[in-house]
Simulated assay, not measured.
Amino acid sequence: MEGSQEMEEIIRIEDPEIDAREIMARIEERLRAREKDLPPEMAMEELEEWGRRVKVPRYDDPLHELSLAIEYARHYAPVSADHPIASSKPVIGPLVVLVKRVIRKFMRLYLDLVFSPQSAFNGEVLEALEKVRELLMEERALCDGAAFDRLSYYRRWGEDRERVKERVAGAVELFPPGTEILNLYAGRGEFLLACSERGREALGVEGDAGLAAFARESGLRVEHMEPRQYLERTATESLKAVFVHEFGERNGRAELYRVVELLGHKMAKGAQLVVLNHCPRSLFACEAAYRDPTVLRLVHPETMHFLLAAAHFQKVEIEYLADPEETAAREELAGLLAQWEQARPGAGGIAGELLGPAFYLVKAWR
């Protein structure tokens, strides 16, 4: 208590001739003047431009931003007395600058000793960040090297490209004419091919480098980037039409949830999303889907409906589609199902459900 009273006595200004407000105003003015000499905070666009000038390596992920930040910080890591000297005095300003320069020259040795610990600390921080970046790049190289070669698989064992194109072609007509369609997880570009054949503008986004390059070789517009990152960089409510084939079947749950959430923010009011997925209630779908080693799971249509509704899609419709090649197999099974139903009422219905349409189509509007 006594200490606080003593502090109050120390900071109390009894002299009526001292104008505390004027003193604070002068301090604020000097601080504003000094702010002009400090390095300003840069927007990401300015940092990108700066990175192009100094040729910082480009990465289509957050590692690029880290590289830019490291290189930018490197310019300000050394701390010394060599900062710009200026004066706001209109008449005696040049004299003030001259005096400051002379004083700094005599005090340089002292200032260098004062600033050297900070410079050393900044250097150690930069070195640590460099090591973090190297570790991330090494981890990236290991992951890329161990990645499954989907293009080679599709060329040898995968489903025929023309057949997939015919399956997704019907979705093209669901979008309003004249609207450019964004195709996420574009794969080999089957949907983009269908759009091209019908004179529709479409842009694909594919995270697999081999598949993206293959689609480009076919003359298709494809961005090599993970769809989640592409959406994160897209302006809010700017997308008018989006198509996704096998949505969520090759990614983790967190990826699926995040992309659905982003679509809810990035698609314009009234914009349409169309999804064509394998139906997990169908044995035909499970057999066809899990032949592909990159498929992790099948997303139930009711789950997809829930996720889209939670992302503020105003209207969601689901339609079940059979693969044309299933027709012959269904006809062969029809008689067997009838026999099962006669022998055990209800058994035929359950079997029919399991042998139902292999795909489901989702139409959703923001």
Rank of each mutant, 00 (worst) to 15 (best):
Y290F: 15
R258K: 14
Y320G: 00
R198Q: 13
V54F: 04
D15L: 03
A338S: 15
L220H: 03
D82A: 15
E249F: 00
E255V: 10
R52A: 11
V172Q: 02
A235V: 14
Y110D: 09
I23S: 03
V244T: 02
E45S: 13
K266M: 07
L193S: 12
Y110G: 10
E139C: 05
P324L: 04
R258F: 01
I350D: 08
A338Q: 14
G158D: 06
E317V: 10
K315P: 03
L98S: 10
R250D: 07
G349D: 13
R188E: 15
Y153L: 05
H265P: 00
L262R: 00
R58M: 10
Q118R: 14
Y257C: 08
A347P: 03
N277Q: 08
D61Y: 04
L129N: 06
N183P: 01
L239D: 03
M107I: 08
A194R: 00
L273H: 06
R188C: 08
P301F: 06
E317M: 10
E45C: 07
E6Y: 12
A209N: 05
A328T: 14
V164E: 02
I18W: 00
G219C: 06
S196T: 11
D61K: 02
A213T: 12
E326P: 04
T294F: 02
L308W: 04
R104F: 08
A209K: 11
L361I: 06
A25I: 05
I85G: 01
E71G: 06
E180Y: 00
V362K: 02
D323P: 03
S116C: 07
A288S: 14
R297D: 04
E331Y: 01
A20D: 10
I27P: 01
L109M: 12
F247A: 08
L129W: 04
L231I: 02
L184Q: 04
E237C: 11
M304V: 09
A43E: 08
N277W: 01
A322S: 14
V259T: 12
Y59F: 14
E246T: 11
E261M: 09
G199M: 09
E127A: 15
A268Y: 03
R104Y: 10
E341Y: 06
L126I: 15
I92N: 08
E206M: 01
E45R: 11
S119P: 05
P78C: 08
T179I: 13
K266C: 05
L307Q: 05
Y153A: 08
E29N: 09
H245M: 09
R228I: 13
F306E: 10
S88Q: 14
C286V: 15
R167N: 03
L307S: 00
Y230F: 15
T234W: 01
G356P: 06
K165H: 03
F284D: 02
